[in-house]
Design a protein around this nucleic acid. Structure first.
Lengths: 162, 162
DNA sequence: GGAATAGGGATACTTTTTATCCTTAATAGG
DNA sequence: CCTATTAAGGATAAAAAGTATCCCTATTCC
């Protein structure tokens, strides 16, 4: 069970978009080039962000993406769920229904205890992701990346932002 | 990203094995029949439990599986990781290495901040699973299942346990 | 000796993920 | 108005993971 690589891509792309000045847009082409990713497939991840309402888009030359909210209002969970979906990571197939000792027509009222426990763990994972804001990431990146590389990357992006 | 159905199967099988009297074994065939699962494929899940040291096996007629520890010493995480593997659910492909602004030969020392956050969420998920013992599940099941069905199932199993 | 068992290798089949291609509608700039 | 560029999305295909079956071997019980 491994998350799609699109999740990683979307998170890094949002981190870039978070640094974009008000009203500017960055294209799929620029984002793909910056991260060394296949442009057409990255486009699908960005479309997921768009459908989830996390980013705004414009068409035409100088078109592209910008965040729909401030980085402080965007959580990791928002981004992860936009790409990976909101479905739980454990699906209950109710195999206890196959118990040969079950009386005919017997129907469980409660969710299976196994599923309930697995879903609680799933929720713990989501709660952790919900607690991290995109702005937390950009702060961590600012500390992690050498000042000059940070500055050069910023300029690289601005040159291409419409 | 969805866990293998073998995880669900393994958890239910362990719940059954937890009720087995000291020294008795239950076969793949019985476990498959009880849960309505394909015997040959369920066998792979049980082999994973065996390789992880969670269950003991014997061969021959009246052979099968029994828990290697008490239900209080077995956690959900033990079982989930035995089947699903211990690898983290987020893999970092270090796409920041493709940043065109990076100086030649520059090498990151720290793990990528994106990965670090995703791994913390992964660890929260595991911590939750680690906190639940197999004995907690059997207690929950005892409350959930009608007394008669519980008794019948127990007898059904005992008739087939070698 | 015969029947039943776990273990494990080989082989398909199915679903998901990854990736590419192409068409359409919108937009900026000349 | 014309051209170039963009996002959106459908169609298709290749690769990987998950699901499932078959078969052989060694062991064990009766």
């Amino acid at each position: 069970m491994i998350l799609k690589s699109q999740v990683e891509w979307a998170l890094h792309c949002c981190a870039i978009l978070a640094g974009l000045p008000e009203g500017r847009y960055l294209s799929t082409k620029a984002l793909a080039e910056f991260h060394g990713l296949p442009k057409e497939y990255l486009s699908k991840a960005l479309q997921s962000l768009s459908q989830a309402g996390l980013v705004h888009t414009t068409l035409g030359p100088s078109g592209g993406y910008r965040l729909a909210r401030t980085p402080a209002e965007l959580t990791f969970l928002d981004i992860v769920e936009a790409v990976e979906g909101k479905a739980r990571t454990f699906v209950c197939n109710n195999i206890r229904e196959n118990n040969p000792c079950r009386p005919q027509g017997y129907c469980e009222s409660n969710p299976c205890p196994v599923a309930r426990i697995m879903w609680e763990a799933d929720e713990a994972w989501r709660a952790k992701l919900r607690a991290v804001r995109l702005s937390d990431l950009t702060e961590a990146l600012a500390l992690d990346i050498p000042a000059e590389l940070w500055k050069n990357s910023f300029e690289w992006v601005l040159e291409r932002a419409g």
